[in-house]
């Protein structure tokens, strides 16, 4: 009977184009829910010209393959994280630096502004729908509270990719492992901490196995995410549909940024409810951390120079916007 049910289930296909959307965020995660609502919005505002089949949680294309999957047409639209394909996005990597990320809203806005200003060739083989970036990435530890760099010495901290350089620069020992293993590793004490945004305390349940959050906003990093579409599929759409989607993208970029901050609050609430504590670091100490992290920024500039990409300009631009933000003067159509 199930089979017959499937056979007779109506499929609205009248004339329009059917697209697939692969997201690495698991279904239920707010970032996945938003992407799915983007699909619904596109269907509504293109008057049925575009219909989208949505696949969350790596089910159609795996996280590290999503950008490539959009280029090759395995999926028509995709959302994933820039960190998974290191070296592929040399300029856009700027957002993953510990630049002192104040919020997901700011990081998302400035990330889109960086893209618009520099139009990097690294993203030229797809149609970029919009970008977003998570809130302040912080160190979280177990048993031992960290208030200074000296406390970090010798601690094993789980970190991915380029973030490992930051951990090393601060004097801790970076340990790499796949995300699904981190919970167990913290529980067993294989690592004494991990670095991630507050959101992850609830999203991946890390709040259950950590004790302290080290709230060092001046050295907080972000991780950038992209929503991109296959160029041929994009060009095949009608002008009206493309205009409608562009308008939606602007709205949704803002929604994603706001959602990152809401998730961070929820993560903090979850973490505190588990009896964990959050400690800030004082300004003198923060200055020491910033000084220690200089090589991380130098490394970025050096790498982009090697690839003939204006990394230094992008970093300067980012820092200028951050300064404007702290003076209350930051302006962006994504903000």
């Amino acid at each position: 009977f199930l089979l017959s049910g499937l056979v007779f289930s109506e499929n609205v296909q009248a004339g329009g184009v059917n697209l697939t959307y692969s997201n690495f965020f698991p279904p239920g995660h707010i970032q996945s829910v938003l992407a799915e609502s983007w699909c619904k919005e596109v269907e509504a505002r293109t008057n049925g010209e575009v219909k989208i089949s949505y696949f969350g949680g790596n089910t159609l294309v795996k996280a590290a393959q999503i950008y490539d999957g959009v280029v090759t047409g395995r999926t028509d639209i995709g959302m994933s994280c820039l960190l998974y394909t290191r070296g592929r996005f040399p300029l856009m990597d700027v957002i993953n630096l510990p630049f002192g990320n104040p919020s997901g809203k700011f990081a998302t806005a400035v990330f889109n502004e960086v893209y618009n200003k520099f139009q990097p060739t690294e993203l030229a083989d797809t149609k970029v729908l919009y970008l977003h970036a998570h809130g302040p990435g912080l160190i979280h530890t177990q048993k031992k509270n960290v208030t200074s760099m000296a406390d970090l010495k010798g601690l094993k901290i789980r970190s991915t990719g380029s973030i490992a350089g930051m951990i090393k620069a601060l004097g801790a020992i970076p340990v790499s492992m796949p995300m699904p293993e981190v919970y167990q590793a913290l529980q067993k004490g294989v690592v004494q901490g991990a670095i991630y945004p507050e959101e992850t305390n609830k999203g991946w349940k890390m709040g259950e196995v950590i004790d302290y959050s080290v709230v060092s906003y001046p050295t907080a990093y972000s991780v950038g995410f992209f929503a991109v579409m296959n160029k041929d599929k994009w060009n095949a759409l009608s002008q009206e549909a493309r205009d409608a989607i562009d308008a939606i993208n602007m709205e949704w970029a803002i929604k994603h940024g706001d959602a990152w901050d809401t998730s961070d609050y929820e993560g903090i609430r979850f973490s505190l409810a588990q009896g964990n504590s959050m400690t800030g670091i004082d300004p003198d100490e923060a200055a020491k951390w910033k000084a220690a992290l200089e090589p991380v920024f130098d490394d970025y500039i050096e790498k982009t120079e090697k690839r003939a990409v204006p990394g230094k300009d992008a970093l300067d631009f980012l820092n200028k916007q951050l300064k404007l933000y702290h003076n209350g003067e930051f302006q962006s159509q994504y903000y």
Partner: peptide
Amino acid sequence: MPPSVILIIYGILTQISIG
């Protein structure tokens, strides 16, 4: 028997404590 990859993914999808 823990560790179990399937239970971890289930926990994340349903927002249930993995522990």
